[in-house]
Simulated scan of single mutants.
Amino acid sequence: MKRKRGKGDMEIVWQTPANPPERHDYIFRNGKRHVRPYYFEFISHVKNRWAGKTIVDLFAQEFKGRPYDYYVSAVECGRIQVDGEMVPVSYVVKSSQKISHFLHRHEPPVMALDLSILHKESEVVTVCKPASVPVHPCGQYRKNTVVGILQAEHDLAPLFPVHRLDRLVSGLLIFARSAAKADLFRQQQVVNANVDYNAREGRSSAEEEKCPGDIHPKGKSACTKFTRISTNGTYSIVLCEPVTGRTHQVFLQ
């Protein structure tokens, strides 16, 4: 965590990814969970494919959420730095250099619904994720996430998602307490769904039965076991073992 003086000698605390969310970071108002605004230092290191680009071109090409003129201004005023130093807009980056982007963050609120811990062991934690809360830091969210809330309010860290649910979806989430355990879980996934094949259109759709007693999903039951054989961190080789034989089964699941 870095500290420096801002306007009027007010102390500004720059947070980095190393600073964990804390209980006092959250404010509850009108049924929503808010995060107190904070200053944040985004840190990345120059990849080999970035080397040789100017600092402004790098950001404009790789981080397209802001206009080119914003990055010019950010470099000129020091909100974007290289190895902790201000650089000109024409500066050409080199491999492995540290790049910092300083921002004042206002995270969007999420619904103030209970994040219930259903089961906790030394190697695994199962929780009930409420709708509107993302699973892990992404986009505009860092502290208003399942991982962030569990760390701030239950001192559960580190956590490794075995699977994910979309931000607007509620349901059960399984977290491993170590990367090795998460990898083991991911290699043992079995997917069950109903596959509805439309012969006339040559298309299939998949549907899961949500809860016992719900309207039975269309199509025929299909089951596939997926086992990850290897990964390079970006792509994986996966063994797909169909337990049943339905048209388009593996593609849909």
Score class of each variant (00 low, 15 high):
133 V>N: 01
121 E>F: 04
41 E>L: 09
47 K>M: 14
12 I>F: 02
55 I>M: 14
115 L>W: 02
15 Q>G: 13
16 T>P: 01
51 A>P: 03
34 H>E: 12
125 V>K: 07
34 H>T: 03
67 P>W: 02
94 K>M: 10
16 T>D: 03
127 V>I: 09
39 Y>M: 13
115 L>K: 08
30 N>K: 14
25 D>E: 02
6 G>W: 09
22 E>I: 05
32 K>L: 15
57 D>F: 10
68 Y>M: 11
41 E>N: 10
54 T>E: 00
123 E>Q: 10
78 G>Q: 07
118 L>P: 10
5 R>W: 02
96 S>Q: 14
41 E>M: 07
29 R>T: 15
142 R>Q: 00
21 P>N: 05
143 K>T: 00
107 E>P: 07
85 E>I: 01
118 L>S: 12
18 A>E: 05
54 T>C: 05
88 P>I: 04
79 R>A: 09
90 S>M: 09
54 T>N: 04
109 P>F: 05
135 V>M: 07
142 R>H: 00
53 K>Y: 08
24 H>P: 11
94 K>I: 13
117 I>V: 15
138 C>T: 06
82 V>M: 10
91 Y>D: 06
98 K>A: 02
61 Q>F: 07
64 K>I: 13
78 G>W: 04
55 I>C: 13
89 V>S: 01
81 Q>H: 12
136 H>P: 00
112 A>R: 00
134 P>M: 02
43 I>C: 12
47 K>P: 07
75 V>H: 03
43 I>G: 12
23 R>K: 05
25 D>W: 03
74 A>S: 04
48 N>C: 13
140 Q>F: 09
41 E>Q: 08
80 I>L: 11
73 S>R: 09
74 A>C: 01
42 F>N: 06
94 K>Y: 11
91 Y>K: 08
66 R>T: 03
79 R>P: 04
114 D>T: 11
108 P>V: 00
49 R>N: 09
125 V>M: 09
32 K>E: 13
130 P>N: 07
40 F>K: 05
45 H>D: 14
30 N>T: 14
14 W>M: 05
20 P>W: 07
96 S>G: 08
81 Q>T: 15
43 I>K: 15
53 K>A: 06
119 H>E: 15
133 V>I: 09
80 I>R: 03
12 I>C: 03
69 D>G: 14
